[in-house]
């Protein structure tokens, strides 16, 4: 059984069937890509994994435990981190503080009452955060507020925040959108390295096929809320069903 098992998940928004009987199995230690046209339901599916949405039907198992009905922080503490499609960071805090917070969450758990500790004296946490920021290519002006960053850098910051928790399952919703080509390639290399060196499984949503085919061990194609194909990358390229799903889409393909 895979680390993440999604069975018969459905979700309806009013008249729109956003997810329609989705089945997905993600093998531990692999990089699993989910692709599909805009509005296919990819982000909605991730929302069902992290406790943002409760599906109308179906089950989501992580390491054999159901994630449904759990609170977001509980799911994260089980080892699931997510990078959002629009960067979710602490804009009023400094870049360094942004990464220190998830590091605290990893070390101290969901709640610790320590009003007399000193953030500045938490050297280990600070060094760990700095190392991860360095890994994603952010090493300058770490005490500047995160609000001033470019969109691409915000994305990298969010990636560093998630990586600092050493998650077992890392969900990435378009991690390279808004990045320049060089940064995209750097991110690909970084994700490859993480996939190899750490004990982590990646689920990645991407429109950029260059990224998908350089990283993915397996690809699921989602269209109109259903998985139409799940296969190895080399078999996806020539698949007529996939072409059909993307028909009318001029870019990205």
């Amino acid at each position: 059984m895979g680390i993440l098992e999604v069975q018969n998940v459905s979700k309806r928004f009013g008249g729109l069937q956003a997810l329609d009987d989705v089945n997905l199995s993600v093998e531990e230690g692999t990089i699993h890509a989910i692709i599909g046209p805009n509005g296919a339901g990819k982000s909605t599916l991730l929302n069902c994994f992290v406790g943002r949405l409760l599906p109308d039907a179906g089950t989501v198992l992580f390491q054999g435990n159901s994630l449904l009905g759990k609170k977001p922080h509980e799911i994260n503490q089980m080892g699931v981190s997510r990078v959002f499609q629009t960067p979710e960071i602490f804009t009023d805090l400094t870049i360094l503080e942004n990464v220190m917070i998830p590091t605290f969450a990893k070390r101290d758990g969901a709640f610790k009452f320590n009003p007399f500790g000193r953030v500045l004296k938490e050297v280990e946490i600070k060094e760990h955060a700095e190392k991860l920021l360095h890994d994603v290519g952010l090493q300058d002006s770490l005490t500047e507020p995160a609000s001033a960053m470019s969109r691409g850098n915000k994305r990298r910051l969010e990636l560093a925040m998630c990586l600092s928790q050493e998650p077992k399952l890392l969900l990435l919703d378009e991690p390279t959108a808004g990045m320049a080509r060089a940064d995209t390639n750097a991110t690909i290399d970084l994700l490859k390295e993480i996939g190899k060196s750490h004990d982590v499984t990646l689920v990645i949503i991407e429109h950029d096929m260059h990224v998908v085919f350089s990283l993915a061990d397996k690809i699921s194609v989602l269209a109109q809320g259903t998985v139409i194909v799940e296969d190895l990358p080399e078999n996806i390229k020539g698949n007529p069903k996939v072409k059909e799903a993307y028909l009318g889409e001029t870019d990205d393909g």
Binding site: H73, Q77, L93, I101, F104, F111
Partner: peptide, 27 residues
């Protein structure tokens, strides 16, 4: 002391993005 503590840092994080904090494993 509260302002300078990890507790205070979490409180400031609540102010800027409580959602993110939840998805970061903080109750």
């Amino acid at each position: 002391r509260i302002f300078r503590s990890p507790f205070g840092l979490m409180l400031r994080a609540v102010k800027t993005n409580q959602n993110r904090l939840n998805y970061t494993g903080i109750n």
